[in-house]
Amino acid sequence: MPVMSTNLIKNFFSGPATRPYPVVKREPFPRARVRLVYDPDKCTYCGICANICPAAAITMEEDRENLRISRHYDSFACISCGRCAELCPQAALLMAVRTHEPSDAKVVEHSTSR
């Protein structure tokens, strides 16, 4: 019956495996995909990212009158797959390890070509 005992003794003396979360945070691994960072200066508005985005988090809108393209990024729809960052020819998109605070309002990022 007491097969579990050795484990319990080990657990008791090796200290807890959990963390008091908001005080102590674990660093994500260097290659973790956490957040999409976008550099509008590098972007050529080619539209590859919008085509490839599996969650339609990135959308491109063409304004034919003013010859402008606007890009919208909904970080709440983003599934952090990082496919766009991989395929971006200009390296304007980057999957960063930087974590972010939880937000309570939905923010959609907009940018427009010149």
Partner: peptide, 12 residues
């Protein structure tokens, strides 16, 4: 998994 693929559960 997180270390090698970048995410813990949905590895993509």
């Amino acid at each position: 998994l997180e270390m090698t693929t970048g995410q813990r559960v949905i590895q993509s």
